[in-house]
Write a protein that binds this DNA or RNA. Structure first.
Lengths: 204, 204
DNA sequence: TAGAAATTCTAATCTGGTTTAGAATGAGGA
DNA sequence: TCCTCATTCTAAACCAGATTAGAATTTCTA
């Protein structure tokens, strides 16, 4: 293997591993778990299929890593963006920022995120454990945001914020199933999703 | 084959075919396309795997039929419910009814609907043609509803109803990924989804 | 209730894709 | 340069399921 103290992460070896992982994310995000052949991944990465086994123990191990990285990065990204929000911002403002960050990251920046979202419910159980832990953390991030917003009176008191949160995340996740950058503007999408939260959950 | 003029749809043969189809819908809704083995379907239906080939040409043909039936039934159900709405109802009222019908049908009444929703983006291209046609009709139903509501002034004029509609359908479709009847009340879910539309899209 | 047709089964085959074996290549250090 | 280790390749083994063959059974009709 590599990527240790003796071999810097930019070594040829580490780059190849990364290329394979990127390729897997790309194919997985496009074709889904069932449609992803190791041969396709290898072709995209520019190697022969057996080369994958030098870096990953099995097809499933490769898939699991993609899923985990995807879930992990989405969370990190949204956390970072939220951390940069100025002090005085309302919780509703923060939610707008989170919606923006989630959507843009998922659609523009990361095949990993897309792969993770699309396949979460389609991979064998054993592959879900580690990614699920990440998703739980991400879920909590949103829960905290909703709870704080409702306590601050920025969200209708009678709204079931747990259900609303799950519906919102679902709406945003499902975007990967229909989004086509050529026919729609990302700005418009973000604005509409934000309106769905601001008016759907916020005070009249 | 059977189910012709000479063999009524309640004949043993037709019943077996139905049992296999039901079993396929059940397994598909639970395990997804990749996880669905013909052997599992056969076991649930109470036959041996090869018996399936007496009724269906191939695994994919069986899957395709489940997907189509699922999409078809959701549309029929929502159409029926909408047709029963009294004359004077507002378009917003109709949308509330449609949300209710969609969610209850998908979660309570139909493994077919769940199978169709969950696997739409995961089956090979050829299997999507017929189901996609159904989905297009269903999509139009919602589009018409949104257009009418906005023209009637029941929806904010500045809202992008196409994007909002896709977000809403996504939110409702994704419910199959997290819904657990034991931990949540269906009524609460329906009410929250309705609120998301009424306040999220409706006039203040 | 015999015989034909329909249905379902067991056993075998086929297939595409993953995985393993082991040889070839290439890069880096003595 | 030569040797060693890392990396990648080609060829072959392996496997889990789908599918087919053909026999056995059940159902229906006359």
């Amino acid at each position: 293997m590599s990527d240790t103290a003796t071999t810097p992460p930019t070594s040829k070896s580490a780059q190849t591993r990364q290329r394979i992982l990127d390729a897997a994310a790309e194919v997985l995000s496009r074709k889904g778990y069932a449609g992803t052949r190791l041969g396709d991944v290898a072709a995209v990465a520019g190697v022969q299929a057996p080369a994958i086994y030098y870096y990953f123990g099995s097809r499933d191990e490769l898939v699991e890593e993609v899923m985990w990285v995807g879930a992990h990065r989405v969370r990190l990204h949204v956390e970072e963006v939220l951390a940069a929000v100025p002090e005085g911002a309302t919780y509703m403002d923060r939610m707008m920022v989170a919606v923006d960050a989630h959507l843009r990251f998922e659609l523009q920046l990361s095949d990993y995120a897309t792969a993770s979202i699309r396949n979460a419910g389609h991979v064998p159980e054993q592959l879900r454990v580690r990614p699920a832990a990440e998703e739980a953390l991400y879920s909590r991030l949103w829960r905290d945001l909703f709870v704080a917003a409702q306590q601050a009176g920025e969200i209708r008191a009678d709204l079931d914020i747990n259900v609303f949160r799950l519906l919102l995340l679902g709406a945003m996740n499902w975007v990967v199933e229909w989004w086509n950058p050529r026919t729609r503007s990302l700005d418009e999408l973000v604005a509409t999703a934000q309106a769905m939260v601001r008016h759907g959950a916020g005070q009249p």
